[in-house]
Design a protein around this nucleic acid. Structure first.
Lengths: 106, 106
DNA sequence: TGTATATGTAACTTTTAAGTTACATATACA
DNA sequence: TGTATATGTAACTTAAAAGTTACATATACA
């Protein structure tokens, strides 16, 4: 079966998951090390990790009995794309405004 | 009382709300006109609008008995900022990789 | 002024997400 | 080989989100 597709926006809606991604910009971390930063049970963290992994926000490298989490760009792409769309909107809106002002100035 | 702060990420986690924002890039729309695009009750749309408004994703202009929804940049800023952070991460990661490769080439 | 239209809100139901505890498994190491 | 460590998963509970219906209010217009 195809991986049950997760919605990237849904995935980053959770503040804990966002914080996990933030932590991973500093350093790759094993799951337990990551869990120490959170005030929730380890299995809860484990679940979040699975979600981040499935949605392509992190990759995981097994070293011995540890699993290191590493940021992965894939998951971010949809978000970047969406935001870019609106960035374009603001820019074009600004340009239209300029045009109007220029015409008035004439 | 201070407006009960909404989490921008939470706000755009809902696919319908994202679609509403998309529609509003084409044109400003009154709430009922907007609602026609969705397969849900009008009050449900009304609720979404309120959320988008409170979180600063739209402003609302009352014209007679209609309320026009207009995109507003405020709500997007936090998202842009967050994404930018990771963009920077990828860029710097790439630079580090280049440095390593250059040193090897020497 | 009476009726239709555009909208907001309250009360409720249903679904989904996030957390917990308890238990299973695999690796590391004395 | 036995014990500690790192992790995954199942079963359950709780809390929050999203939807619905019913009703209230305000503007527009014949």
């Amino acid at each position: 079966m195809p991986t049950p597709m997760l919605d990237a926006f849904q995935v980053i809606a959770d503040p804990s998951r966002r914080q996990m991604l933030q932590l991973l910009t500093k350093d790759s971390l094993a799951i337990n090390a990551l869990a120490e930063n959170f005030d929730m049970s380890r299995p809860a963290v484990s679940k979040h990790i699975k979600i981040l992994y499935t949605a392509g926000f992190i990759s995981i490298q097994d070293i011995g009995r540890e699993r290191y989490c590493i940021l992965k760009q894939d998951g971010f792409k949809e978000l970047q794309c969406w935001i870019n769309n609106f960035d374009k909107f603001w820019v074009s809106k600004l340009k239209k405004l300029e045009t109007i002002l220029n015409n008035k100035a004439k």
